[in-house]
Design a protein around this nucleic acid. Structure first.
Lengths: 330, 330
DNA sequence: TTGAAAGCGTTACCAG
DNA sequence: CTGGTAACGCTTTCAA
């Protein structure tokens, strides 16, 4: 059994009240007793119980984070950013993996609420559509990173996925590519929807007609990239460039290209989305669209904390930037 | 403010005690009142407070996890395994990043203890040497994954790093390579120490003398791999193969090899350690030593839970296996 | 400057 | 089958 404040108080010969105040460095406690209490606490190896404290203070200094999986490198980046921002504000993270399953997202939400976390950030929410009844009773702020749910109490911070995808296509167009393929992501998420839209719009803005037979389905995995590349190579004429829903998919096309002897960017230019740490390590290094994950994580935490203080806050959207590397010829 | 059990009880016209039992599906409560209580709870959107419950039950159903960073893909794999095992046992994870800084590891340990987690797993502990006084007052089991600390109450589960490194070297030797370089990892951790040892021993067992000028220092980053490769290529004679402390380092040598026009495995064979998901996506795919991270995570959780039940448990070590891919010629 | 006591939201024991 | 009541470990009035 852990040592309690009562033990410390007894040992120091004071009441629990005084012991509590002494350890909290309350101004109206004599230095003398403070010293005695601290001494007793040290000798007993006393560590205060955050759970008891949470009960009375009605706050846990904990933020809940729901993510598909920590092994998803994009999610990991966001989690890290959130972690850093939270830590700086004196908060810690309760992490739950939903594995992208909507029902598990809802369960996680409920569990976090039971634990009375002070805020919840959901990364890449998949099936928040059926959240209505859970959300309606929540007394804790929720922020979505890269997702949106039509609930008035839920804020979101996201990358401008449409703009990002358009940016990539325009870059390709500028470089002289015109037959540009696209490999998609999970259609339940809004980021995937916006990215295709950006792709299509940029093409149309350039007076081109997006052709359905160079738009490949995918779930954002490397395997999707591999499969799409094999498909692509059997097409006549072949696409000259491909924009991928995310870097992971791009990694798959790069790997399959290597296996099939397809040269990048000479035979096919490849462009990703997310700028994962790994994308500068591929052969060739991957040109990709970057999201400001750092700021997004910080912002998520900041929105949560401000909402907690009763502030009204707005959704925020960050523009993407292009990271030029060697998988696209210039 | 969240609705409390008292609110539910009042609405259902029963005492809190009864309400509590009704919701817990206690056998000696009439179906009738159970129904009424449940109904009231639903209508009010009642969600029990885990913090209050934790206080009385003296357990939080939470495991603390200290890791360098979630963005470290090796750590992420272990975290995931731990998460899955924990979830299956009804536990959730409080995650803290230490960024490899010993003082932050200690702080994290203390914070987790304050929150009364039911167990703590530390992944790749760096500076546990000065843990003595923290550990001595802990009333919660601690398990180290891939680390060791000379404290009687701390258990560890690790990969057999020595055997893994030897395995890799023997594989290289078998394939006809003799001039084999090594790029090291953080020397504060025991895994790095064991891996060099395995490298050296395998060489010696084959009657070769490990040469200090092909043993490069590193911290386990891709940049270390790049730097070491450049060094290596300036040597005469050049190494024919290189064993890397981990996959990340191997990624660095692969990337730099691509940049310098060094062909893998023709000019240089490369072998990694960890078998990250990404290692099958490199060009060429990376031959590497795999640790059974899945089982290691499960085992860590299992040790924790068994210790909590008062069982005596032993350290456990898992053997590594070799994953043959294309970065080594056969 | 200190202490007694109430209360945070539950569970569990003891009566009835 | 149900209700009081005492914890759980801490903070915070309110008095002294």
């Amino acid at each position: 059994m852990p040592v309690s404040l009562k033990d410390v108080a007894r040992k120091a010969g004071v009441s629990v009240a005084t012991a509590s105040r002494a350890l909290a460095d309350h101004p109206r406690i004599s230095e003398n007793t403070k010293a005695r209490v601290r001494q007793a606490a040290r000798e007993l190896g006393y560590t205060p119980s955050a759970v008891a404290r949470s009960l009375v203070k009605r706050e846990t200094h904990t933020l809940g984070v729901i993510t598909t999986s920590v092994t998803d490198p994009y999610a990991a980046q966001v989690v890290k950013a959130v972690e850093v921002a939270a830590e700086a504000a004196g908060y810690h993270l309760l992490l739950v993996a939903s594995h992208g399953v909507p029902s598990r997202e809802v369960k996680a939400l409920r569990m976090l609420y039971e634990r009375r976390v002070d805020g919840i950030v959901i990364i890449s929410a998949r099936g928040m559509d059926a959240y209505e009844d859970v959300l309606s009773h929540l007394t804790v702020p929720v922020v979505l990173v890269n997702g949106r749910v039509p609930h008035p109490a839920v804020r979101s911070v996201s990358a401008n996925n449409r703009q990002g995808a358009s940016l990539a296509v325009e870059y390709l167009l500028d470089a002289g590519y015109t037959r540009i393929a696209y490999i998609g992501g999970p259609t339940q998420g809004q980021s995937a929807r916006h990215r295709v839209q950006g792709y299509v719009q940029a093409l149309q803005a350039a007076g081109l007609v997006p052709s359905p037979d160079v738009i490949f389905p995918g779930q954002g995995t490397a395997e999707d990239g591999r499969r799409a590349l094999r498909h692509m190579m059997s097409l006549r004429p072949k696409p000259e460039a491909v924009l991928c829903y995310n870097d992971l998919t791009a990694f798959g096309v790069l790997a399959e290209a290597w296996a099939m002897g397809v040269r990048v960017p000479d035979d096919l230019a490849v462009i990703g989305f997310d700028n994962l740490p790994f994308s500068e390590l591929t052969a060739p290094p991957l040109t990709t669209v970057a999201q400001p994950t750092e700021e997004m994580g910080q912002t998520a935490v900041s929105l949560l904390l401000r909402q907690r203080r009763g502030e009204e806050v707005q959704d925020v959207v960050f523009d993407c930037t292009l990271v030029e590397r060697a998988s696209v010829r210039r």
